[in-house]
């Protein structure tokens, strides 16, 4: 399954965090490094496997841990309407 970003998002990396604002609802979100990798991956149309691979290569974590984290983040992003399923 692939995802895409909500087209109404405005974002900027400031310091170590990525700040994301949904311009439709004015909701502000602050992403840590892992959430940022997921966000950037979705922006580049990566699937979950590719995002997990990127996290495993950048941080010394087991694939199962990375996958669980990515799935959790994606679930939260979907709930908050930051991303949507690509049809």
């Amino acid at each position: 399954m692939k995802y895409k970003l909500n087209p109404h998002l405005a974002y900027r990396k400031i310091g170590e965090f990525l700040y994301v604002v949904d311009s439709k609802t004015s909701m502000l979100y602050k992403f840590n490094e892992t959430a940022e990798i997921v966000f950037e991956g979705i922006k580049k149309c990566f699937d979950i496997d590719k995002i997990v691979k990127k996290i495993v290569s950048e941080y010394e974590v087991e694939e199962s841990v990375a996958r669980s984290d990515v799935e959790e983040i994606i679930k939260e992003m979907l709930e908050k309407n930051i991303i949507e399923v690509k049809k």
Binding site: P7, H8, L9, A10, Y11, R12, I14, Y19, V21, S23, K24, T25, S26, L28
Partner: peptide, 15 residues
């Protein structure tokens, strides 16, 4: 005071 609806203005505000 966030501006609703307009992506360009919201992006500007963050900057």
């Amino acid at each position: 005071f966030w501006l609703p609806k307009n992506k360009f203005l919201t992006q500007r505000q963050i900057n």
